[in-house]
């Protein structure tokens, strides 16, 4: 009987639990700040083409008469080495960075979560094979492997996204695998088995929903990290290529001119910083609300 009562909670959180999560989430000022920042980025990204004051400057426009103008009421972030409005480019860059972040995290989770589920649930040699391959990918910093992959594929934004996606999935395997191992022993999974449900149904309908908290937290943190990594690749010249207004690439362009135009590299850097911070706050708050025991994993 107790097993059957357990079954009722398997489809996710009960109403009181949801209320508790919301309460914890809303009580923390940083979660409100994080969420507002993230919403602001998405709004900026969605409406970037309408918001930028000089849309032609987003791509390859050249205005040699207004090179490296300092910030002013006309050009809030100043202009770059060929006279393009940096405010327009940085705002448009939000769209590019969020796109990269979303794709990398979606592909990473899309590959990693099912592998982690299968490894944790079935165990045996399936688990051994999946986890050992995961170990190999986790054996070096992801950015180094991503650089190697971009070197093989050739520089460019698409290839940078492919490379980052390839190095991003192992983290999800590890986190989901660990969680499944504990969930697997719960009464409702046993009850599902006793009722004769097939493995796939138990796995995706009952185990997966109970693994969602760490996945959500990691995805939020990873959005920031993926954006930061992509900017790093852009900065060293193998990610997005000019004139694409990707933040890392803009910083790299502005690097040579710092002594005459400090604003050129400064504003895109601030944009990266705030974006990563926003997703970090959100991830932190989600973790505190959903899964307080995860402090260690998320901080790492």
């Amino acid at each position: 009987m107790s097993d059957l009562r357990g079954m009722k909670t398997i489809k996710g959180r009960s109403a009181t639990e949801t209320r508790r999560v919301m309460r914890v989430f809303l009580r923390n000022p940083l979660s409100i700040l994080g969420m507002s920042m993230v919403i602001a980025f998405f709004v900026l990204a969605a409406f970037a083409p309408l918001l930028v004051p000089y849309p032609e400057d987003v791509s390859g426009a050249i205005h040699m008469k207004q090179r490296h103008l300092p910030p002013s009421s006309e050009h809030w972030f100043g202009t770059d080495e060929v006279g393009r409005d940096l405010f327009s480019r940085v705002i448009y860059g939000t769209r590019i960075s969020l796109e990269i972040g979303l794709i990398v995290v979606a592909v990473g989770a899309g590959i990693g979560v099912p592998l982690g589920l299968v490894a944790g649930f079935f165990g045996g040699w399936t688990e051994q094979v999946i986890m050992r391959i995961t170990d190999i990918f986790l054996a070096v910093p992801g950015i180094l492997l991503a650089i190697a992959i971009v070197a093989a594929l050739g520089p460019g934004m698409t290839n940078a996204m492919v490379a980052l996606s390839i190095v991003w999935w192992p983290g999800y395997v590890r986190i989901v695998h660990g969680k499944v191992k504990t969930v697997r022993e719960e009464a409702y999974v046993e009850a599902g088995r006793a009722l004769g449900l097939n493995s796939m149904r138990i796995l995706f309908r009952h185990v997966l929903p109970n693994c969602m908290s760490p996945i959500l937290v990691k995805a939020s943190m990873d959005m920031g990290m993926a954006i930061l990594s992509a900017a790093g690749l852009g900065f060293i010249g193998i990610g997005a290529q000019p004139p694409i207004p990707e933040w890392g690439a803009i910083i790299s362009e502005g690097r040579r001119y710092f002594s005459v135009a400090w604003w050129h590299s400064t504003f895109p850097g601030l944009a990266i910083w705030f974006t990563v911070l926003g997703f970090n706050f959100l991830g932190d708050a989600l973790r505190d609300a959903l899964d307080p025991k995860m402090r260690m994993q998320a901080l790492s």
Partner: peptide, 11 residues
């Protein structure tokens, strides 16, 4: 937490 290392380096 979110500070891009390469940007801090540049600054």
């Amino acid at each position: 937490l979110g500070l891009p290392g390469f940007w801090l380096a540049l600054m």
